[in-house]
């Protein structure tokens, strides 16, 4: 058994081949900064961030749709705070709100039921955005809407799944040596789906918790595997993650949602990467149909390269000069979980 001190020493003194590790989840990115992990490991171990912020990869056309709803008579868009400042093709929800759009920030999806029941004359559209971590609660929301026979609330979904995105990155980006698998998503989906990727692409996948020690231990495991030419899936978040995941939550998701192709901002179409409301529950769907969104990134914005792990945010020419959290040009700068936003907040003074 290694002590934390030994792990830290080995990682700090690592002098082998350069290793590039992608952390998929925004909470990991945040924790890496909060714990000063980069200052504790050898510069030969590079940590790069992946597509793990649902706000960042939501299509601008989706935001446009929300804005259209907010401006329609007797309509109100319900959303989490993160979405307010993400730009559509012209406006963001904050700006729509300033020109008369009706937008309300919620803290819990289930509050939507209460609001819809209390205001039966208003048609509500819930901006259901997220990965598998939030999707089960949307399934519960639909269940509640059914039970309460709610007619004036629908979901506009942009729900994505992480395995197809990681698979896309493995297929297209050769330079990433290993992955820190997303702890929160794995609580729901388990870790068995990573086995296929580990075998196919010969890369280690390590499921990690979010404390600094967890992340150091996971990095150590990855370095150890790479040194020994292994490519295994290893679950190091054993208190929360099982191989098969949360069976009940998965069943709830499966009851109301089905797989579909989806557009990822900055990446493009990824096959089978969306969860859409099943046709038999279409009455709860505000029109989340698949469309081939055509959008070009803002001039100079390199969010695509950031999300795909090709560059770090500070390599983008707009980073911290034109693009800041107060004036976000690319989507990755908007959310507290967005890669550029996290890097900006933690940039060297």
């Amino acid at each position: 058994m290694m002590t934390l001190g030994q792990v830290k020493t080995e990682l700090k003194e690592y002098d082998g081949e350069p290793i590039k590790i992608m952390e998929v989840c925004g909470t990991h990115t945040s924790s890496i900064f909060k714990n000063g992990i980069r200052s504790l490991i050898s510069p030969k171990i590079q940590l790069i961030s992946g597509p793990g912020c649902p706000v960042c990869v939501t299509a601008s056309a989706y935001i446009d749709k929300l804005i259209d709803y907010s401006l329609m008579e007797n309509h109100c868009v319900l959303t989490f705070g993160d979405m307010m400042k993400v730009k559509g093709n012209k406006l963001c929800l904050t700006q729509a709100s300033a020109v008369g759009g009706n937008v309300k920030i919620l803290y819990s999806p289930l509050d939507a039921v209460k609001i819809a029941l209390e205001n039966s004359q208003t048609q509500y559209v819930f901006a259901a955005v997220g990965f598998e971590t939030t999707t089960p609660i949307y399934a519960v929301l639909i269940e509640e809407m059914k039970k309460n026979k709610i007619k004036n609330l629908k979901l506009l979904t942009s729900l994505k799944t992480i395995i197809p995105a990681v698979s896309y990155i493995c297929e297209n980006e050769e330079k990433i040596d290993a992955f820190l698998a997303p702890g929160h998503v794995c609580v729901i989906i388990g870790y068995s789906d990573f086995n296929e990727l580990a075998i196919k692409y010969h890369k280690p996948f390590v499921v990690a918790g979010f404390e600094g020690e967890h992340i150091l231990a996971a990095i150590y495991e990855i370095v150890h595997q790479i040194k020994n030419k292994q490519s295994n899936v290893k679950n190091m978040y054993v208190n929360a993650v099982s191989e098969e995941g949360n069976i009940k939550a998965l069943a709830m998701m499966d009851k109301y949602f089905e797989k579909a192709d989806d557009y990822w901002r900055g990446i493009g179409i990824i096959k089978n990467s969306a969860l859409r409301i099943r046709p038999e529950f279409a009455e709860f769907d505000a029109g989340s149909t698949f469309e081939e969104y055509k959008e070009s990134p803002p001039k100079g914005c390199r969010c695509r390269d950031v999300i795909l792990g090709r560059i770090n945010p500070n390599e983008c020419p707009l980073f911290s000069i034109k693009c800041t959290p107060l004036n976000a040009i690319g989507p990755c700068m908007v959310s507290t979980e967005g890669v550029c936003g996290i890097w900006f907040k933690n940039r060297e003074a």
Binding site: K8, G81, D82, F131, T324, T336, E337, N346, R347, A349
Partner: peptide
């Protein structure tokens, strides 16, 4: 502002930008 973390790493601590809103994931 620099913070020596519990793990003895260094963390740059910047000012707050925008409102501290709960995350969605």
């Amino acid at each position: 502002v620099n913070m020596i973390t519990t793990l003895k790493g260094n963390r740059i601590v910047d000012i707050l930008y925008g409102e501290g809103l709960p995350r969605i994931c």
